[in-house]
Amino acid sequence: MTIAPDDARRSGSHVYRAMRDLVQSMDDTDTIPGKFEITQEGIVHDMMSPIGPHELTVLRLRKRLEKVMPEEIVAHTGEPDVECQSEGIMRRPDVMVIAEADMETEGTFDPHTICAAIEVVSRSNPDNDWVSKVRDYPLIGLPIYAIFDPRTATGAVLTDIHPTPEGPRYATRKDFVYGEDVTIGDWTISTDDLPRYQD
């Protein structure tokens, strides 16, 4: 579900600041399930409570990446958000590949410190991962975006940001199916035994 006014992208405006304050206040309470993010379209509320296949996929991806990455690079899950105030976008990827030293900051992460963003597609709101984030992530400069979809046991790795009339977009997309090895940046991991959603 998306809620917000048309001028949400104007990060310097009182509208963006009000949305940011609202999202942060919602994150501070455990009474509303799901996750809130700010996109160019406004506030997105993914109402999905974490479920087994989603969380297990996140866990396995994090562990597999950290086995092949140098010690100073981590596959971080959780807070804080990645924020680009100039574009009025605040997101929280399921997994963020980032140098541990770049985590030593107050507040949100600068998107230019993120090596890669990884999302596990939500069963309740797949367009958030396959459409909105495909638009937002190159706009804020995330160089690599990997998508894992437990609905279909497929995914894609998007790279090579380039300018287009609609704004920055990923130029390269490499699709994969579960069971194949997948390369994210400099690191290749297995997609064997990643869980699927059950109908």
Rank of each mutant, 00 (worst) to 15 (best):
H76L: 06
M90E: 12
R62A: 11
A116Q: 08
K67R: 06
V121F: 09
S132L: 11
P126T: 08
K63N: 12
K67T: 02
E100L: 06
V82R: 01
I118L: 10
I98A: 08
E119Y: 02
D127K: 14
D136T: 04
P126K: 12
L65D: 01
H112Y: 15
L61N: 05
E106R: 12
A99W: 15
K133D: 03
R91V: 06
G141C: 00
P93G: 00
V121I: 06
R123T: 11
A116R: 04
I118E: 08
V82D: 04
I118P: 03
V74E: 03
P93R: 00
W130F: 09
S122M: 01
V58H: 10
I73Y: 08
V58T: 14
M96P: 10
A117R: 01
T57R: 04
S132M: 11
T105A: 14
E100V: 07
R64I: 02
M90Q: 12
I73E: 11
H112I: 13
C115D: 15
K67G: 05
G88P: 03
L139N: 11
V74Q: 06
H112W: 15
E72I: 13
I140K: 07
C115Y: 14
D129K: 02
I89T: 07
R123G: 13
Y137S: 01
V58C: 10
R135N: 09
L61T: 02
T57S: 12
L59H: 11
V68W: 03
D127Y: 15
L61E: 03
P80K: 02
I118C: 10
A75D: 01
V68M: 00
T57C: 12
M103W: 09
R64F: 05
V121G: 10
P111Y: 07
V74C: 05
V121E: 10
E106H: 13
R62C: 11
K63G: 13
E72K: 06
D81S: 13
A99Y: 14
H76C: 09
N125W: 13
T108L: 14
I140V: 05
D102V: 10
E79T: 14
S124I: 08
Q85A: 15
F109K: 12
L139I: 08
T77R: 04
E71C: 14
